[in-house]
Design a protein around this nucleic acid. Structure first.
Lengths: 343, 343
DNA sequence: TTGTACGCGTTATCAG
DNA sequence: CTGATAACGCGTACAA
């Protein structure tokens, strides 16, 4: 990098003090004569002045950066969240630093550390770590933190939750309403609050209807990857259909898994929804592009990102740090992967 | 944020100079007695010392940050690219700052400006701006820049290209090889080098075979959004099948478009591939999850990201800035959306 | 081995 | 209105 030009350089060229230059170039409201202002602006333009944010931020002891930690950006759900975050961050003049924890607690902690060192104004985190040491530390240091997606039991942290339980309940009830009684639930490892929530919702709905729950859980928890989820869906469908009392409807803990289920059913010569019905969870865009379009539970990803960022920005603005606890509600996206057994 | 503790604070607590503290806490190889070292480390631990990167970077006049500009992170293709970039960045101790240009030239320029101010070490850019003023400026300032995906005609810029032309050619040839003669090409607006490249490849293959090309272009260029692409695919398929000589195979400029094409065909009661064959372009993961699994041209997104980052890191390391111009080759992913008319 | 002192680029304070 | 100067937190010559 060629030596960059500073306010001092410009000051010399304009025969003024660097203070004046700074006042002009940082759009301070401090009065500077029009003559000087235009002269300085002109010179800055000529020499291609680029302000050094590091100096500025160090001086002001404040950045306009927020961090976000998600499991993986290649998960369409999370990329929508990040997209939403960036959207409002940009409007508010913030810059966002996004990190993939890859479901690795160590990596998650590392990134939190990096963010602290970067002096970010706040962090949005979808944490999968069970040991929240680092996260607690963050909050202790009075950092603005918002947890999304994964519920945290820590004190003093604002959260945007999603009612996974209700989502699972809703799905099971919907299937029951369509006349299904033998309803299976396939899920990735039940090691996260969100996943447990959906599962319990499903169980409760089944119990309430006096139906026998039927759950298949994939027990290993590999690094996230859409294809892996898809394959997991296939595997779980295989298990579920292999038994002596196969279900008439399969509910999956996420859409990608549901894609795998549908694929596997087709491979086995079964039609969806005429032979077996399938429901997903999340409501990612591609769900409506496949065949049949997937009936699913919508989790407002993009809106969640926007809301999280908005809340974070508000927190950084206000002197006091009000605690919020928003709970977003599930919505059923009725498409064409479920058959009505009543009619 | 509570007042953060600095090397000076620790120096006072340990009754040593801040220089010594700095030497210890920054893992300098400068000799410090074991006794002092452990004492300082202990105190730093106790007071929750967090180094301030701004001070450090300002002093060293160098960051470990690289920037990447893409049209949109919710495009699965780009999220894979970014994922690849982050992967090697992390290994190399770099931090990445990702921005969505939303296909807006002004926004792209704004982000380039921000990156310069942030003192990033290098920039990876998939630029859609036609006026490359800002980008040229970047290069003039001796910044490390790598263009990906979209070919730039500027001088002095390293690029990772993809042979779109060959990809388009390959696809058309493949369809011809399967006995198709009436092959349509549907594409979003032909305003980018990449899109033009694919189209020309298709045209050349058709000409070579003495076949009449049949292109439908969607002329408006809306902000990127998977659903929008899908709908565009539907619209284009509608037009294409509405004519008096509908094609037996439709080749789409990207996979999402192809999804839309397939959907529309199904709505019209046409089976893929038995009635009409469909090919996509990009090779995003979901292509194998739909029905029928999409035959497509693979553009190595993740690998492209990794390679770009690796090159950038190498550039920042070496004193000299060697110019690279890698051209990645297309690969045909043969799945089940194309019917063989020969057999 | 440790300490002193300066400077990185910027802005804020205070004096003129 | 303008200028000199200190300070943000850190690393590092240079001196001790």
């Amino acid at each position: 990098m060629s030596k960059s030009v500073t306010v001092h350089d410009i000051a010399k060229l304009a025969n003024v003090s660097s203070a004046t230059v700074s006042r002009v170039l940082s759009n301070s409201d401090y009065p500077v004569s029009e003559k000087l202002r235009t002269r300085i602006l002109k010179i800055a333009e000529e020499v291609n002045y680029v302000p050094n944010l590091l100096g500025k931020q160090l001086k002001k002891n404040s950045t306009m950066t927020i961090g976000i930690i998600i499991p993986s950006i290649i998960n369409p759900f999370y990329s929508s969240v990040v997209f939403g975050v960036e959207e409002v961050a940009r409007q508010e003049g913030f810059t966002v630093f996004a990190c993939n924890s890859l479901q690795d607690p160590e990596l998650e902690d590392e990134y939190i550390q990096t963010m602290m060192e970067m002096q970010v104004k706040g962090v949005i985190v979808s944490s999968i770590t069970t040991n929240k040491e680092k996260l607690k530390r963050l909050i202790e240091m009075n950092m603005n933190v918002i947890a999304i997606d994964q519920k945290l039991d820590e004190e003093g942290i604002s959260q945007i939750e999603f009612d996974h339980h209700k989502g699972g309940f809703l799905a099971a009830k919907y299937l029951q309403g369509k006349g299904h009684t033998r309803i299976g639930y396939v899920t990735t490892k039940l090691n996260r609050p969100s996943r447990k929530g959906i599962c319990r919702g499903y169980m409760d709905a089944m119990k309430e209807a006096g139906l026998e729950p039927f759950v298949e859980e994939y027990r290993s928890d590999e690094p996230f990857n859409p294809i892996f989820e898809f394959e997991t869906g296939r595997e779980l469908a295989r298990r579920m259909m292999g038994g002596d009392r196969p279900p008439t409807a399969i509910f999956a803990c996420n859409d990608l898994l549901a894609f795998g289920v549908i694929h596997e059913l087709r491979v086995r010569g079964l039609q969806v929804p005429s032979d077996v019905s399938v429901m997903g969870f999340d409501g990612i865009d591609v769900g409506q592009m496949i065949h049949p379009p997937l009936t699913t539970i919508k989790q407002p990803d993009y809106e969640m990102g926007k809301m999280a960022c908005r809340m974070l920005v508000d927190m950084t603005m206000g002197k006091d740090k009000p605690m919020f606890n928003v709970t977003l509600q599930p919505k059923l996206l009725e498409r064409h992967s479920v058959r009505d057994l009543n009619g």
